[in-house]
Design a protein around this nucleic acid. Structure first.
Length: 775
DNA sequence: CGAATCGGTCTTTTT
DNA sequence: GACCGATTCG
């Protein structure tokens, strides 16, 4: 049992406590992955059949890596029958084999957020609901909220409180939209991301024999990143583990950063309540970072109210101070970072892979790409608009999806007239309306075009076009029976006219679109080869589609061999480590995000995000911020992030002196930034509220308490802040002088002002961005 | 029916 | 500045 050597006491306990509920609180850099892999290896060495182990991870990549490491200890063949993956991919697999019970086809399509957004838009249109009042994105997030809290359509209509709540939010049609959306997905034979969890819950609740089957199968359950599980995931784990209670959860409440998609930090905070006999192990020694980095991070995270007491410490060298650079603009910031990397690459012989640039939003990438390219520094951008979400790629995929699931109307409407083949909107509408009136699917109308033709009211020319199109699809389907996925996709790309259509466009964008199609073909080829190499591999088209739907990171591990600087959002960086980290864009309204500064909860999450970012660094960390930034097509001023002023000066070193004066001024000025909030008494109440809510019902976004704000604005120049009131004379950069007619809204980030300008007439402005000056 | 153009809106993070 | 939708013209 060599693998047990070199574990510290806490790690040893976590690895060897095999039976019963166990919670491992793993501070940043405390060897969490090592503990998880060794624990699983230890289970197998102790003769637990790998077949009986279920390990749920946060990304598919993490699962893959861990599986490999376990294989090295217990042998690859043993590791193979382990079930390891994300909640979504593991339960998608289970749902496929049990789909018939729920009335779904086993080849159901998985909708990504773009697909589901399209379905929502269609629902709004079909029901004549104004998309301006019901922003599709907002509708989507509300529906997601329902689903993650197990509020089905039926449950929704049975709960007056929810209905009332939506009415208060001026969204009284939410129930109808929700219902229609669910119906549409069902008709299309499709599940969205949330469905994968919701339907699993449905499966386990409605069919006790199914639950029993999987309870017996998964005798040992491990959940990584437990702090980021949502209510739906929580219930699945609870149900599966309830028979044997061999449940081990690993996580760090200080690193919970996914509440925007329903993650409920109380899952981990209340673990002891769910399992009173649970053993708790705390891993507190950080092996990753220098003392200076660990201590600096501790100072910031200690500002959060909600957390377990922990004492994360490092016995590594003390290390350098964190260097702070104040840039004049986003371009200046990027060029500083690029120069710094270049210099360290030369003077300290560091590889480019040693460096990471971490940012809050994807839109910040561009400036860094430019700067790095100018210096010929190789880099790789992770995440962002995933490759598979590009339009041309999605179009080809839509063709492939239709081959697997003909009822996928979302895919059908994407390609029925793309490339254009004379089947316009009018025709498509007639098809859909007719299919609905006959209570059959669009695909079956197309299947029986001959029979339905007289009733469709379409002329012969159109009918021929339709039947040509559909026989092409049918031919692809036939081909799929004998040929492999790659050959079929190639044929689809050619015969559909897609390639030719794209090749006609010789602009740089057009050429890159063709390249993207080629890249998709390559990745498909790679996938098939990979699947053929592993035993029980599944190189089918259906499996390929499932894989790309559930793993945004498929292309990330591809060219990992290269020596490249890594660029990614902080969210994506969780679980990774780099010798040198540049944390950039440390500005108010960017980080913390302007979307997340209105409640204490939101701010605490941003602070955890900051904590995650800093603790990625092993040796050195750089903070940068810019005083002005090109954003939304214009230049905006910015002030340093409050997180900078929350740090302890002893951990910092200011590179350019101006930064120091600015910083000190500001921290003196703004140390009371929290005192502005109508703070603490309410936080206590809130905690109580949340506890009682989480077990039973949802916490729809609108129900969150908003601070009772006065119409206070912060002038982005940082010079002054002032109150603007109705009746004030104000000046606007572009519109000139005007009078404030009225103010609307309580959320300080979202106060709208109606202003009557002398020359430009009445305008509705968001106070925060309008930069009005009182005169 | 389809291409082109204009205008308005929105941009936090992701399985 | 990117993307969607509506509108207009051929």
């Amino acid at each position: 049992m060599d693998y047990l050597k070199g574990l510290n006491e806490a790690q040893y306990q976590a690895v060897t406590t095999l039976e019963g509920p166990l919670m491992v609180l793993a501070g940043a850099g405390s060897g969490k992955t090592r503990v998880l892999t060794m624990r699983i290896a230890h289970l197998i060495t102790n003769l637990v059949d790998p077949f009986n182990i279920l390990a749920l991870t946060f990304t598919n990549k993490a699962a893959k890596e861990m599986k490999e490491r376990i294989g090295k200890v217990v042998g690859q063949s043993e590791a193979k029958s382990l079930w390891m993956g994300t909640f979504h991919s593991v339960f998608a697999r289970i749902l496929r084999s049990e789909a018939h019970l729920l009335g779904f086809p086993s080849n159901f399509t998985i909708y990504d957020s773009q697909d589901s957004l399209n379905v929502i838009r269609k629902v709004l249109k079909d029901n004549n609901i104004d998309a301006d009042l019901y922003k599709p994105k907002k509708v989507q997030s509300r529906i997601s909220n329902y689903k993650n809290n197990l509020i089905t359509v039926k449950a929704y209509f049975g709960n007056p409180e929810l209905i009332e709540n939506d009415e208060r939010a001026n969204m009284k049609h939410m129930g109808l939209i929700y219902q229609k959306y669910v119906e549409a997905c069902f008709k299309n034979g499709a599940m969205d991301f949330d469905d994968l969890l919701l339907r699993t819950n449905e499966l386990l609740t409605r069919f006790p024999e199914v639950l029993a089957k999987y309870q017996d199968r998964f005798r040992y359950i491990l959940v990584d990143e437990y702090q980021d599980t949502n209510h739906s995931q929580y219930l699945i784990v609870k149900a599966l583990a309830s028979k044997f209670e061999n449940i081990c959860v690993v996580g760090d409440d200080a690193q919970s950063i996914y509440s925007f998609r329903g993650a409920n930090i109380y899952n981990i905070l209340n673990f002891k309540k769910d399992y009173p006999d649970a053993v708790t192990v705390s891993l507190e020694q950080n092996y990753r970072s220098t003392q200076n980095i660990v201590n600096a991070a501790n100072v910031v995270i200690s500002k959060n109210v909600q957390q377990f007491k922990k004492n994360v410490f490092s016995e590594n060298e003390e290390g350098d101070k964190i260097k702070v650079y104040r840039a004049l603009s986003d371009a200046d910031e990027a060029s500083f970072v690029a120069s710094n990397i270049w210099e360290k690459h030369n003077s300290e012989q560091r590889k480019f892979t040693d460096f990471a640039i971490l940012y809050r939003t994807n839109s910040q990438t561009r400036a860094f790409e430019d700067a790095l390219r100018r210096k010929n520094i190789p880099y790789k951008v992770y995440g962002g608009l995933s490759f598979y979400q590009r339009k041309e790629v999605k179009d080809l995929i839509a063709y492939l999806r239709i081959l697997i699931n003909e009822n996928d109307n979302e895919a059908l409407s994407r390609i029925i007239n793309y490339p254009t083949r004379g089947i316009g909107e009018t025709t498509q509408n007639k098809l859909v309306v007719f299919a609905d009136s006959q209570n059959v699917s669009v695909s079956s109308v197309l299947d029986n075009l001959g029979i339905y033709a007289p009733q469709l009211g379409l002329n012969n020319g159109i009918l021929t076009k339709l039947s040509d199109f559909w026989s092409m699809i049918k031919a692809f389907q036939v081909m799929l029976k004998t040929e492999n996925a790659y050959n079929v996709a190639m044929e689809v790309a050619k015969r559909s006219g897609l390639i030719k259509f794209l090749k006609d466009d010789q602009t740089p964008e057009g050429i890159s679109r063709v390249e993207n199609i080629q890249e998709l073909m390559n990745s498909m080829q790679g996938f098939i080869e990979e699947q053929q190499q592993i035993e029980d591999g599944d190189p089918s088209l259906a499996n390929f589609l499932e894989n790309i739907a559930l793993s945004a990171d498929t292309q990330t591990d591809k060219d990992e061999q290269g020596d490249q600087v890594s660029l990614m959002t902080i969210h994506l960086s969780k679980g990774l480590e780099f010798p040198v980290v540049h944390l950039v864009g440390l500005e108010e309204n960017l980080f913390p995000s302007f979307m997340s500064s209105s409640t204490r909860e939101e701010l605490e999450e941003e602070r955890r995000l900051f904590y995650v970012a800093l603790t990625r660094a092993e040796k050195q960390a750089y903070f940068t911020y810019a005083v002005s930034r090109f954003q939304w097509g214009k230049i905006t001023n910015a002030e340093p992030s409050r997180f900078l002023s929350e740090m302890d000066a002893q951990h910092l070193e200011f590179i350019n002196p101006v930064a120091e004066t600015r910083f000190i001024n500001r921290s003196g000025l703004k140390s009371n930034i929290f005192d502005d909030e109508p703070a603490e008494p309410r936080s206590f109440k809130k905690k109580e509220e949340k506890k009682s809510i989480q077990r039973s019902e949802a916490l729809p976004a609108s129900q969150k308490l908003k601070p009772v704000a006065t119409a206070r604005i912060t002038n982005p120049s940082g010079a002054s802040s002032e109150n603007i009131e109705v009746g004030d004379q104000v000046r606007h950069d572009r519109f000139g002088v005007g009078e404030v007619l009225f103010l609307d809204g309580t959320d300080p980030d979202n106060i709208k002002a109606k202003v009557k300008f002398q020359h430009e007439g009445e305008k509705n402005l968001i106070l925060k961005f309008a930069k009005l000056t009182k005169i």
